[in-house]
Computed example of a mutant assay.
Amino acid sequence: MKVVLSGGGTGGHIYPALALAKIIEQKETDAEFLYIGSYRGVEKNIVPQTGIPFMQLDVQGFSRSLSASNFKTVYLFLKAVREAKKILKGFQPDVVVGTGGYVSGAVLYAAQQMKIPTVIHEQNSVAGITNKFLARGATKIGLGFEAAKDQFPADKTVLIGNPRAQEVANLQSDFSWTSYGLKDGVKTLLIFGGSQGAPAINLATLAAIPAFNDRPYQVVLVAGPKRIDNFNRLLAERNLTLGDHIKVLPYIDNMPAVMKKASVLVSRAGATSIAELTALGLPAILVPSPFVTGDHQTKNASSLVEAGAALSIKEPDLNGDSLVKAADALLLDDAQAQAMEKQSAAVGITDAGDRFYDLIKSVI
């Protein structure tokens, strides 16, 4: 099987594609891959490290206001489509898979014009603009959330989940909290606002420090490499000290392994985060980012809240008191935590990679 993968801009578009590649490799050892990304997205730093052949196209997103830059966007898109056709003609793929981001729009549109089977994957509850554009010509559409079904042609959609979930569910973790100076066997609240940290979550945690100092559970905040200095400065300005059971870190590079040992997770409500935590059956306190297209994180979070698989705090309502209240509800009440674990695991699709593989095979 020869597969072209395309997705870019953010990790949420890239990691599902890479997780899918691992699944395919397990099932078809002679599979060949080519990843087509952009010059602007983080895929240029991530994909080459995997060993998958990587090529780039020059694309950019549309401005949501009237702007002359949109003329350049159209020009770059049409140029990228022409270049993508040349790449596809040379590679001769059996299928082209798009996981979102502007670059996948050019690649899959080129494939559709060349009559090559295409499969798109929508990770979120609200369809992205690129996937909406590609849907009419797509052969099949894999969904991460049932809530996105009404936004695509019904005869093409299949609920498959996010392949990142299967990757995390099968992970064997030998992580120990002792590596951070904490104790194993003690309930631990892991607070993670993304790889760069989230200012609102950091500030709420800062305000919660006096209360967390008195709690029996451990607290780990991942503040972000560029934000930890500011957090520590504010900590000193407010004359706050951290109890021995509280740690503030800049970054965690083995997050799934650490998540597997956490009791409760505080995080944004991105599709990849939700796929990972539900694959682990991990109770969560979700703080949807208000700065995303279509407010899709709020809708992602709502799907878990409605299933009893998570709590959610809107960012304007996030402060020290609301954070502590939510944390206490799950870490001081075993019955509620256990019920949420069960519901989280029920929502998780731990065979998402296999489902995605089967969907791809169905179009070849």
Rank of each mutant, 00 (worst) to 15 (best):
N319H: 06
V119A: 06
S195W: 01
G100S: 12
S38Q: 01
L280K: 02
Q60K: 15
Q56A: 14
A110T: 04
E276C: 12
A17T: 13
G105T: 01
L143I: 03
W177Q: 13
I116A: 02
T293G: 01
M259G: 10
V97R: 07
A284F: 08
H121E: 01
I116H: 02
L108Y: 05
A346C: 04
L171A: 13
L304S: 12
L78T: 07
I246L: 13
G193P: 07
V59K: 02
Q336P: 04
G270L: 02
L34D: 06
A284H: 09
L359F: 03
K132S: 08
N170Q: 15
K183S: 14
A106R: 00
P153M: 02
L318C: 09
R268A: 04
P93A: 10
L249Y: 07
K342E: 10
L359C: 08
A307Y: 03
P225D: 14
I360H: 05
V81M: 01
V96M: 04
R238D: 01
F71Y: 08
A154L: 09
A169K: 14
N202L: 10
M55S: 14
Q172C: 10
A236E: 13
D358Y: 03
A138H: 09
K85Q: 15
D333W: 09
A31Y: 05
H296E: 08
G137N: 14
E315V: 07
S267H: 02
P250M: 04
F91S: 10
L206G: 14
T118G: 08
G11L: 03
A271S: 15
P225K: 15
Q123T: 05
Q196M: 12
F291A: 13
G101P: 03
A269T: 03
F71A: 13
I274L: 15
A17G: 15
L240Q: 13
P288C: 09
N162A: 09
P316R: 11
L323S: 10
V74L: 15
I191C: 06
P316V: 06
F33N: 09
K22Y: 01
L332N: 15
E237R: 13
G185Y: 05
H13Y: 09
D244R: 11
S104R: 05
A198S: 15
L332W: 00
D333C: 08
F152Y: 09
F291L: 12
E146V: 05
G90C: 04
M340D: 08
F33H: 08
F192Y: 13
F212M: 13
D354G: 11
I349G: 02
P288E: 06
G270F: 01
K72S: 12
P316C: 08
L76T: 00
A352Q: 00
R227I: 07
Q297L: 03
A127Q: 01
T157S: 04
S312G: 05
I364P: 00
V222G: 10
W177E: 12
V186A: 12
V158R: 07
M259W: 01
N202V: 10
K79Q: 15
L221K: 11
S263H: 08
I23K: 13
G41E: 00
K115I: 05
V220F: 10
L76V: 00
T298K: 14
D334P: 04
N300A: 07
K89L: 12
L286E: 01
D328A: 11
T350C: 13
L286Y: 05
L78P: 00
A127P: 00
S65E: 13
